[in-house]
Design a protein around this nucleic acid. Structure first.
Lengths: 208, 208
DNA sequence: CAGAACATACCAACCGGTCGGTATTTTCGT
DNA sequence: ACGAAAATACCGACCGGTTGGTATGTTCTG
């Protein structure tokens, strides 16, 4: 019979606490004591599982990559027949995720990298990897959409995939500044429109 | 005869130091002692001019608004005859600003708001004001461009102006993650292309 | 001399991290 | 199958340094 008060192990609870706390207050302002209190573990447990706070940050970035990787891998847009529809479906999916409070749908690694890109190289690299790996999941569909439309544009599938991430990261910043997700949804709509126009340059615009 | 080592007053030097330090390490990780050392003033001077660190943050956001406001007001794209050219000129100008090291061209308020939007309301508001005031400088030109082309789109000039800021903020995050400005420049190119297509929907695409 | 602009000394709270210790599980020779 | 040994998981008091902030001067300026 397992102990009642804590079902998951301390490490997993610390990582989950880190996701919410860091997205709420940032990496630097989140203290080890707060993490421990939120996870219901002691400081001894913290430094048993992570050799330092920075190591927790790196592990949190990797945990984030795994969680989001699973979420997007299971998303329904992958079953769409046309590659362009899958790309547009991804953007729609991102917009649909704008639910709840800001710390619940904003990006952990986008927050962390802003604070640590100069001072904690290992954390910067972990965040960069998380973003570029996620962007990479779009490249094949973008490339296939380009080929199916016979496009030979000045831009690359890779740069367009990264641009989608830039729009999303920026949309989160505006949402934090505004205190609401509306502005982020509007920006994602612009991204959606851009993708439509890129791949259907001669089609008439939809209105309303 | 004024003292040789310090020409400007302590307040101005503290604000200038805040711009660089906060953009380098974030708001929370920047300490009052570091600010004082970088500005060449003592702690007594700091708390003489700012009643708290948060107050320095708010003042830095306002200082940032004034500096960037002057920079963009004096930029050459304002003299272009066509409103769309002015909007595109703004985006080109933003791309041209991607010079030097990351802390020199990234956005102060975008960095600060990520860390403080939940914990320091006054700072969040100051950052939001800085961003929305800057975006507002684009709205008239966008509106004029819409009218001159007879566009009655589903989007508003306001939302498009905010979208440009989202792209820029997101481009900075990607640049910080990647350790270079190249990815930011690519994303700004996508933004430029979007604006071109929005206002010239039937024109043929340029290639190469 | 009045008051703004600084400087110096100091403080309590808090920070990340360490340390010696205990409880639990796993390993493994017999 | 069994128990010793070793590894793992966890605890919480403690540490030295740092934090934002204060109290009390001193100096410069009009």
């Amino acid at each position: 019979m397992a102990r009642a008060p804590q079902k998951a192990d301390a490490r997993a609870r610390l990582l989950d606490a880190a996701l919410m706390l860091i997205r709420s207050k940032g990496y630097s302002a989140t203290t080890v004591d707060e993490l421990c209190a939120a996870a219901g573990v002691t400081k001894g447990a913290f430094f048993h599982h992570f050799k330092s706070k920075h190591a927790l940050g790196v592990a949190a970035a990797e945990h984030w990559s795994q969680m989001t990787g699973a979420l997007f891998a299971a998303a329904p847009y992958h079953t769409l027949p046309d590659p362009l529809e899958r790309v547009l479906g991804y953007v729609e999916f991102r917009k649909a995720l704008l639910q709840g409070e800001l710390p619940e749908f904003t990006c952990l690694v986008g927050t962390m990298v802003q604070e640590t890109y100069q001072s904690v190289p290992a954390l910067r690299e972990a965040c960069a990897l998380s973003i570029s790996n996620h962007a990479a999941t779009l490249v094949d569909d973008i490339q296939a959409a380009m080929e199916s439309r016979g496009l030979t544009p000045a831009w690359t599938a890779q740069s367009l995939a990264l641009h989608t991430q830039a729009v999303l990261q920026g949309a989160f910043i505006l949402a934090k500044a505004n205190g609401g997700a509306k502005v982020a949804a509007d920006s994602i709509d612009h991204l959606y429109r851009y993708l439509q126009m890129l791949f259907q340059p001669q089609a008439e615009q939809h209105r309303g």
